[in-house]
Nucleic acid binder design. Structure first.
Lengths: 229, 229
DNA sequence: AATATAAGGTGTAATATTTACACTAAGTAA
DNA sequence: TTACTTAGTGTAAATATTACACCTTATATT
């Protein structure tokens, strides 16, 4: 930065790819737009960054307005800045993905005041999206596909207590590949980052599975050692 | 984006961490600032994004102005947007790392008109940096440390024709860890992405090593298979 | 021309990891 | 009691990783 700050018509926004996992399906939250441009189109939730907000704060706010939840797991992953990506002017958009637990106790219902309509939609069955949101989504999906191989993000998509089969399911759906049950369990348990809760699933037909939770402390101690799926 | 675009005093810039590798040392390009704020401090090369420039174009331009080179390997890796990161107003900065070949035929000399002074400085011996550039640098270094394990970016730091020892050196310096010569060669060659040029180094004292080049076509064919160091 | 020097280049055995594969156990529902 | 559905488990073969030391080759020196 070698000049005094020049100003021209430009601004920046956040767009969020909010992933949720439910019954073996990976979904994202889409909203139906109420305003031009792209009125009535489906779009990623997003908004302009406030004057006194950091990017992370802004993303957190958007997610909170949309879901009522705070402390959602969230990572910034790429910034989209093509000149003409927004028909009304230069808008650079910083993209975040968020991961959240759909299944389990409480289902997440998008808050209707945020947009005309908001729905969970299976990533395999997405409608056309406004702006360059298709590209933003695809980049985000690629990102979590890579990241799940080396970082413990799968747990963010599951309820706190989960079964090994559920966990395997997350890996299978995101990696788009069936995995061997015995090998999956052996490897996953070998990392030593799961805590056996010595507790069984409730309210299922048929044999109940053992519940586990992700052990953050033990994961932190791996420091440096790579986990790899 | 649900409103008409609001405007307030804000802008965005690009900052670049330009890595170069030479004789076993990993360096970055720093400039000495000529203006307030942080006059006379060392900083990452960067600039405001032009009105009609995409982010990638802007980063390319900055690197071209600085080095005279185009087609430098470059990746956007993170966007920094804390409210007070720039003392003169809200500036969101999109960070890129660039990798370039210092060694070999032609040394890269930073162009002096770009800044009062520009130097290659060993990453192990960096001065204090302006703004939040230390954090930007550290994030970038982390990024390439991770990325070099799974993507063929090491070659970008070497001349087109290189020896296996030089390549091993890149991995050792970036990974901050000595590697076994025989194992390194075995594994690297096993990927089948290096082309043996059947040609020897010139002008070295002592036994000349075989030269290789990175074979992009073969790498592209690996599609999906992961390379892993 | 003989010798010293410095880096290049190579193989193998021990260990660890990954893969492929199929049955029994447990709990629910009819 | 039986049928159904998912949970849970072990082993052998193949592959990948690690640890490790010496000879080769080209140049520089005497």
């Amino acid at each position: 930065m070698n000049e005094v700050l020049p100003k021209f018509d430009s601004t920046f926004s956040i767009d969020c790819v909010v992933f949720g996992f439910d019954e073996g399906e990976l979904k994202i939250l889409l909203i139906e737009r109420n305003e031009e441009p792209f009125k009535d189109w489906w779009a990623l939730p997003g908004n302009i960054v406030g004057e006194n907000e950091s990017l992370d704060q802004s993303a957190g706010r958007i997610l909170n307005e949309l879901t009522g939840l705070s402390n959602i797991y969230m990572e910034q992953y790429y910034t989209f800045g093509d000149v003409n990506r927004h028909p009304q002017g230069r808008v650079v958009s910083i993209a975040y993905y968020a991961l959240l637990r759909l299944g389990g106790d409480k289902a997440v219902k998008p808050i209707s005041t945020y947009a005309k309509k908001a729905n969970w939609i299976d990533v395999k069955d997405l409608p056309k999206l406004a702006f360059d949101h298709k590209k933003i989504f695809e980049t985000g999906l690629e990102k979590i596909k890579r990241r799940i191989k080396h970082q413990p993000i799968a747990f963010e998509l599951l309820p706190e207590k989960f079964t090994l089969t559920q966990l395997q399911n997350v890996y299978e759906v995101i990696g788009d590949k069936k995995l061997d049950k015995r090998n999956f369990r052996k490897k996953m348990l070998s990392f030593g980052i799961l805590k056996d809760l010595e507790e069984k699933q409730q309210g299922v037909s048929f044999r109940a599975a053992t519940l586990y939770k992700f052990d953050k402390r033990k994961y932190a101690k791996l420091f440096g050692k790579e986990i790899s799926f």
